[in-house]
């Protein structure tokens, strides 16, 4: 069921299960959200020297066959802190890592998981292979010393989208859901036993969606797929866990509003940085990382819309 592809850009040191210095940067306390199911909640912020890049959620599921990890955070030390925290919950080994998508805050902890198969969608592995080093350098600049020892490890198991999406780990049957829209490939993982949906960055909650690589139509389809998955608990890529549709509806409504604001601005002849300073409706101004995230969206998405109005 797995196509194999092994590319490791940088070698890591021999595996150290309990790192001595990880705690200095990342104080990771797993929160139990369902039977056997834990998350590490990221800060609702952009990368900085205080949060050490730990701005995304990651998680793990303890199964009879071992521990399944979803996303590895922004750095090797974060990944090592995850392993240490997991070891305080269970003695079982980590048997697989899934990477939801190729953004730096979700996969740069991979080199803390030496010897564990790391699985991702084809485009995710491809992007990490081609742009991972640039993303790591960027994060070094933003968060500094917490990145030490981090190197790019490309996922070595490519998820075959034509294969059976169901994978059993003991009595945890996981459904691998391949979508796109937040990025060119967005993996969601539904645990059919607990109803927990690890939605990756398809879903944001009380934190403005990051849209630099967004495709609005695809993203809305991914949200519909998430809503129709039958989940009971959703773990967003950023923001608090919820037991209802609220984060999905919030993300969808924000993206619809954003698309319309950009379209209307281009039709009016607004300049990009002028549109950035248009006030946000209270509902969207209240999200974390605003207005910075809205302004980033304008920087990335507006030039194409603006250019299309010129002849």
């Amino acid at each position: 069921m797995w196509a194999r592809c092994i590319v490791v850009l940088c070698l890591w040191l021999p595996c150290a299960v309990a790192p001595a210095f990880a705690d200095g940067y990342y104080d990771l306390a797993p929160q139990r959200i369902a039977p056997d199911t834990y998350v590490f909640l990221g800060a609702l912020e952009a990368f900085d020297f205080d949060n050490h890049g730990a701005v995304a959620n990651s998680g793990f599921i303890v199964t009879e066959q071992g521990v399944v990890v979803i996303d590895t955070g922004p750095s090797r030390l974060y990944g090592e802190a995850m392993r240490a925290a997991i070891a305080r919950v269970t003695e079982r080994p980590v048997v697989r890592v899934y990477i939801t998508h190729a953004h730096a805050d979700h996969f740069l902890g991979n080199n803390a998981f030496a010897g564990v198969p790391i699985a991702a969608l084809p485009a995710t592995a491809q992007t990490i292979r081609s742009a991972g080093e640039a993303m790591a350098r960027h994060l070094y600049d933003r968060v500094g010393a917490a990145m030490r020892g981090t190197s790019v490890v490309v996922p070595d198991e490519i998820i075959d989208r034509r294969a059976d999406p169901l994978v059993d780990y003991g009595d945890h049957r996981l459904e691998l859901i391949a979508t796109a829209g937040h990025s060119p490939a967005d993996l969601m993982i539904l645990d059919r036993r607990t109803g927990v949906l690890f939605a990756g960055d398809v879903v944001f909650h009380d934190r403005a969606p990051a849209t630099p690589h967004g495709d609005f139509a695809g993203w809305q389809r991914a949200l519909t797929t998430a809503a129709d998955s039958g989940f009971r608990i959703v773990v967003p890529g950023h923001g608090p866990v919820a037991e209802n549709d609220t984060p999905l509806e919030q993300t969808g409504a924000y993206l619809r509003w954003l698309a319309e604001r950009l379209r209307a601005g281009a039709a009016r002849g607004d300049s990009a940085a002028e549109l950035m300073f248009e006030p946000l409706p209270p509902r969207w101004a209240a999200l974390a990382v605003q207005p910075a995230e809205y302004r980033r969206s304008v920087t990335y998405l507006y030039p194409a819309l603006e250019g299309a109005t010129l002849k």
Binding site: F47, H103, A104, H213
Partner: peptide, 19 residues
Amino acid sequence: DAQGGGCAAPSMTLPESAG
């Protein structure tokens, strides 16, 4: 500020110049 980013930084592909 040079300290941009958060999720999805930096650009994964070098963008075409707008023009």
